[in-house]
Simulated scan of single mutants.
Amino acid sequence: MPGDEQAGLPTGEVARRLGVSPVTLRSWERRYGIGPAHREQGRHRRWSAADIALLEAMCELTSQGLPPAEAARVAADRRACQDPSPARGEPPTGGGAKPSDLAGDETRLLVRGLVRAADRLDAPTLQESLADAVDLWGVEDAWEAVIAPTLRAAGRRWATVGEPYVEVEHFLSWHIAAELRRRAYPVARQGPVALLAAVPAEDHTLPLDALAAALTGRGIAFRMLGASVPPPALVHAMRRLGPAAVVLWSQTSATAMPGLAAAVPNRMFGVAGARRRPLLLLAGPGWRGVKVPDCAVLPQSLRAAVDCIGARAGLGVPSNGAVTTKA
C-alpha cells in the first residue's frame, strides 16, 4: 500500500474495498480472530496489507460456500504457512460462536430488527442484516435461530393485521430467498447428488432454498426443481440423475401426496447386481400425520436434513435424535 496506507487502513475503508459491511469485519474479529495483528493503544484499529490479504482469503472462501468458522481456520492456516511468526497474530480459537450462544433477548432483538426493516420496506438494511447473520453463523444456524423465527413473526403479524400486510411478507420472503440463492450454487457432480423438489401445488420453497445453500456449504451436489413439481417431471429427473437422496417439501397437509412419496423408493438405479434406491426425505410440516413409506426419513430441522444427506453421500454422519425414520 503506497503512501499513508502503509500505516494501515481504517475498518470502514477496508470494508468498502472488500464489499462487506464494517459490522461483518468486527464480527469476524470478535468471533474468529480475523483482525489487525498489531494495535496501538488509544487508537482506532488499522488494517495492514497482510491483515487485508487475510480478509480477502476469508471473503473468497465464504463466497465458495465454506461456513465462516471453517473459512477463518483455513485462511489463518494459509497465513501461518506464509509467515509463521507469532507477531502476525494467532489463528482463531473456539471455532466461532453460534446463535445459540446468544442470550434469548439478543436473538429476539435480531429478529425484531429484521421484522422492522421489512415493515419499513427498507431493502438495504434488511439485506445487509440477513447477509451479516449468514456470514457470522452459516446457513444452518442462521436459518434456525434468526431467519425462521423472523418468518414466523411476520406470519403472526400478517394473521393479526390481515391483507394490508401481504406486501411486507412478500418483501421479506423475496429478500430471504435472494440471500439464500446467492449462496446456493451448483457443486460439480463428482459423486452422489441430492434432488430437491416441492410437491405439486406447493409454492412455498424458502426451506428448499435454505437446504440448497446449506448443502453448498457442505460441498454436497444438489439439483433443484423448485415449486410445484409434477410427478412425471420428478420421475424423469430421477431417471436422469439416479440421485442418492430425494427431498420432497410440503408446507401443509393439503399439498402432501402420500402416493408420490410411496412411489419414490420403488425407483432403483445402477447396473444390474448393484442397484440401489434413493433415500427419501419428506421435509416440512405437511407430512405430519400423513401415512408415508416406512423407509422415509422425516427430518426435524434443516441441520438434520443436511446431516442425513451428507451421511448418504459419505460426507458426514446424521445427528443423533434429529431425524425420525418411519420404521
Rank of each mutant, 00 (worst) to 15 (best):
M1G: 14
Q6S: 15
L9R: 11
E13D: 15
R16Y: 02
L18D: 10
G19V: 13
V20A: 07
V20G: 05
P22M: 12
P22D: 08
T24I: 03
R26V: 11
R26A: 13
S27V: 14
W28D: 08
W28L: 06
R31D: 11
R31S: 09
R43N: 04
R43Q: 14
R43W: 09
A57E: 06
A57V: 04
P67C: 07
P68H: 06
P68W: 02
E70V: 13
V74L: 13
V74W: 14
C81K: 15
Q82R: 15
P84H: 09
R88H: 15
E90C: 11
G94F: 04
A97L: 13
K98G: 10
P99L: 02
P99F: 02
P99Y: 04
P99I: 04
D105N: 13
T107M: 15
L110E: 07
L110F: 06
L114Y: 01
D122C: 10
Q127Y: 05
E128M: 07
L130H: 00
A131Y: 06
A133N: 11
A133G: 08
V134C: 04
G138L: 07
V139M: 04
E140I: 01
E140G: 07
V146R: 02
A148W: 15
L151H: 08
L151N: 08
L151A: 08
G155V: 02
W158L: 13
T160L: 10
T160G: 03
T160F: 09
V161S: 05
E163Y: 06
E163C: 09
P164A: 12
Y165H: 10
Y165K: 05
S173Q: 00
H175S: 06
I176K: 06
E179Q: 03
R182T: 03
Y185V: 05
P186H: 06
V187D: 02
A188T: 15
Q190V: 08
P192Y: 01
V193H: 00
E202W: 03
H204Y: 09
H204G: 07
T205H: 05
A210S: 07
A210Q: 11
A212Q: 00
A213I: 02
G217Y: 04
I220T: 01
F222A: 11
G226W: 00
V229C: 04
P232M: 00
L234S: 00
V235D: 14
H236M: 15
A237T: 02
A237S: 09
M238P: 10
M238S: 12
R239N: 11
A244I: 09
A245M: 03
L248C: 10
Q251W: 11
S253I: 05
A254D: 14
A254P: 08
A256Y: 05
P258D: 02
A261C: 08
V264H: 03
P265D: 11
N266C: 10
R267V: 14
M268W: 14
F269L: 05
G270T: 06
V271G: 14
R276Q: 09
L281I: 07
G284I: 05
W287K: 04
W287L: 05
W287S: 09
G289H: 08
D294K: 12
A296K: 04
A296I: 12
V297I: 14
L298C: 15
R303Q: 08
A305I: 07
A305D: 06
D307A: 14
C308H: 03
R312V: 00
R312P: 01
N320L: 15
G321I: 09
A322W: 07
T325D: 10
K326V: 10
